[in-house]
Amino acid sequence: MIIASVFGMILIAMGFALKSQNELFSKIANPLKYVGLLIVVLGITSSLFVQIQAGKVGVKSLFGEVKPAILESGLHIVNPLYDVTPFDIQTQNYTMSASNEEGAKVGDDAIRVLSADGLEVIIDLTVLYRVLPADAPVIYKKLGVNYSDKIVRPVTRTRIRDNAVFYDAVALYSTKREEFQTRIYSSIEKDFKSRGLILEQLLIRNIDLPASVKTTIESKINAEQEAQKMIFVLQKEKQEADRKRLEAQGIADYQRIISSGLTDKQLQYESIKAQLEIAKSQNAKVILMNGKNTPIILSDK
């Protein structure tokens, strides 16, 4: 808008200059002055108003001096000489990944750290953060608008390397992963806060171990699975053996009870009952008793 005002003033000056020339030029001098005046008025008027979009704040500066007060989202009337820089205060993310297309930087930007046992561990990470609105002028004065590359990236990578040396590679990959994430979150949060940034969340996307360590872990997992499978088989066989033992014991008990409870008279009585049933059958014709307990049955069938 300042450029428009300057352009309008040039038109006004040209109008005064042409007026002193011949009659042809003097005819267009007045319209030129009016147009120039209109442009100056519009330029000054429009520069009085500044609109700040939602999710942003405005940082004012005058001839290089940054003003401490910020402009909230909405329409504001300001000194037309002010230079207003919008600052994003919404949640932002910065990803460092081994994948070429996922990270903030093109190419492999994963964080490579050395663990306590001297192994190289590759970590993919996403940082969720936002600018503290009241500190936007300080950030603009000390860092400018490119604070993600000046603060977020170097601080995060440094703190991760500083804390990874307290853990073994396998522990980082498995049992100590959550503890490691909590630890680096605390250290990064302090650094961010001192510079006007709020750390909202720290997401460890992936931890990649050396191939030799992966092979060892897979072998251990397979061995544990085989051991669990063998324990299951042994338990099943033991249960089957116990079942057969109980079944045999039951049969033995049954036979013992039967043998101890039967007498000769009871057996003779049961034999007579059976003979009577046989005699009632239409297929039996003659029953001969051979002087023993066993009958002889003659049939015409």
Rank of each mutant, 00 (worst) to 15 (best):
V84P: 02
D109E: 14
N100S: 11
V121Q: 05
E102D: 15
T85A: 15
G55D: 04
I52Y: 04
V59A: 01
A110M: 07
E72S: 09
S73E: 08
I77N: 00
H76C: 07
I111D: 04
G64N: 14
V121F: 14
E65H: 08
L114H: 08
L119E: 15
N79I: 04
E101D: 15
G118W: 09
V113F: 12
S61W: 00
N93L: 08
F87Y: 12
G74W: 06
I89N: 04
D117R: 15
G55H: 06
G118Y: 10
I70Q: 04
I52N: 03
T91Y: 01
A110G: 09
G118Q: 14
P80K: 09
T91G: 00
V121R: 05
S73C: 06
E65P: 01
V59Q: 00
N79G: 02
L119R: 15
I70H: 03
H76G: 04
L75S: 07
L71D: 02
S61N: 10
D117W: 13
A54V: 15
T95D: 09
I52S: 03
G74R: 00
D109H: 08
A116R: 12
D108R: 01
V106M: 08
Q53T: 15
V84R: 01
K67H: 05
Q53M: 08
Y82D: 04
R112G: 00
V57D: 07
S115Y: 01
E72P: 05
V106Q: 15
P68V: 12
K67N: 04
H76I: 05
Q92G: 07
V113N: 08
A116D: 10
G74F: 06
D109P: 01
Q51W: 13
T91H: 02
I111G: 06
V84C: 05
P86W: 06
K60L: 13
T91N: 03
V66G: 00
N93V: 11
Q90H: 11
D117Y: 10
E102W: 07
G58Y: 02
Q51T: 11
A98Q: 10
K67S: 07
N100R: 13
P80E: 05
A104L: 08
D83I: 11
L62N: 13
A110L: 14
